[in-house]
């Protein structure tokens, strides 16, 4: 993908020296939260809370983990397997100039090209997701093809914790380690919520997740998923040689106090008064990851 400075003058490119600017990431994510809240005014229902839980992770992937050339192009790939969090991805792609502000304004409108889930063929979108449990296997195929072709590319896949209940995810987890795909990185948005409640209450034996993934042959790190710097540090300090898994402990709806850990905000847009309160209360987020039991620390 290409960053076009002409499309969006404010497009931001990671520092050339490879260091990740944590303070800039916090400012950026605050602006992205404002942008997503503003866009929610266009739609009666939008997945806000799932986007806010993974926002720092998506930001860190694009601005800290994916390598870019001097033109902003990257041969690394990101797949948002929990496709319902796509507002985080759309907002970042707008920031990078890959999507236009009009694209985001027309989200879910017939005259636009963006929908409620990422759609393959849209600029910046590498796979169609929305049905859960598909992204990791697709990313695995890409990573395997890159190995076959001796190409130095990395594939990042972000999955949700509810999504991890799909058996297909575990098929892909097993296979990635069997194939030795050290160019594949899976990030888990461990926000402890899914459709029918807290995962730690409805599916307590989902945990301990770190131990499970490690037992499947992955190198695993667990970090505060709202601390983008910690995410980047974890990646850069990995041992390597095997696929890498990052558990990001997060809070669903992070950043808007009345949305945090409240299930109804999985798929709802705020009304005028809620919007005003949400906007007034937005502050920089740089920590405060969730504390789901067994998420590791």
């Amino acid at each position: 993908m290409l960053v076009s400075d002409t499309d969006t003058p404010t497009a931001s490119v990671p520092p050339r020296d490879g260091r990740f600017d944590v303070a800039a990431a916090r400012r950026r994510c605050l602006e992205l939260r404002h942008r997503i809240l503003d866009l929610s005014r266009n739609l009666a229902a939008m997945h806000i809370a799932p986007a806010f839980s993974c926002l720092e992770m998506v930001d860190a992937i694009y601005f800290g983990l994916m390598r870019r050339d001097r033109n902003g192009a990257s041969s690394d790939t990101f797949i948002l397997s929990k496709g319902h969090g796509c507002m985080a991805q759309y907002a970042v792609l707008e920031r990078l100039g890959v999507l236009s502000s009009e694209d985001l304004e027309l989200n879910c409108k017939p005259e636009g090209r963006l929908g409620g889930h990422p759609d393959y063929g849209t600029p910046g979108i590498e796979a169609s997701t929305g049905s859960l449990g598909h992204g990791l296997a697709i990313g695995l195929g890409m990573a395997y093809a890159d190995k076959l072709k001796r190409e130095d590319r990395r594939v990042f896949v972000l999955v949700g914790d509810g999504e991890m209940q799909e058996g297909s995810v575990w098929e892909a987890l097993m296979m990635a380690a069997n194939l030795g795909l050290d160019n594949l990185v899976c990030l888990l948005d461990l926000n402890d919520f899914q459709g029918l409640g807290r995962t730690s209450e409805t599916h307590p034996h989902f945990y301990p997740i770190v131990d499970k993934i490690a037992a499947f042959g992955w190198e695993v790190a667990s970090v505060d998923g709202h601390d983008a710097g910690a995410l980047v540090d974890a990646f850069q300090s990995r041992r390597g040689g095997v696929p890498f898994f990052v558990v990001g402990r997060t809070i669903k709806g992070r950043g808007v106090a009345f949305m945090e850990n409240v299930p109804i905000w999985h798929y709802r847009s705020p009304d005028a008064e809620e919007y005003r309160i949400a906007k007034a209360g937005l502050r920089e987020v740089g920590s405060g990851g969730g504390t789901a039991p067994g998420g590791g620390s």
């Binding site: 590498e126 796979a127 598909h134 990791l136 296997a137 697709i138 990313g139 695995l140 195929g141 890409m142 990573a143 395997y144 093809a145 890159d146 072709k149 594939v155 297909s168 892909a172 296979m175």
Partner: peptide
């Protein structure tokens, strides 16, 4: 699933 990713490459 992995054949999809391979074809994309």
């Amino acid at each position: 699933g992995m054949t999809a990713g391979m074809a994309m490459r």
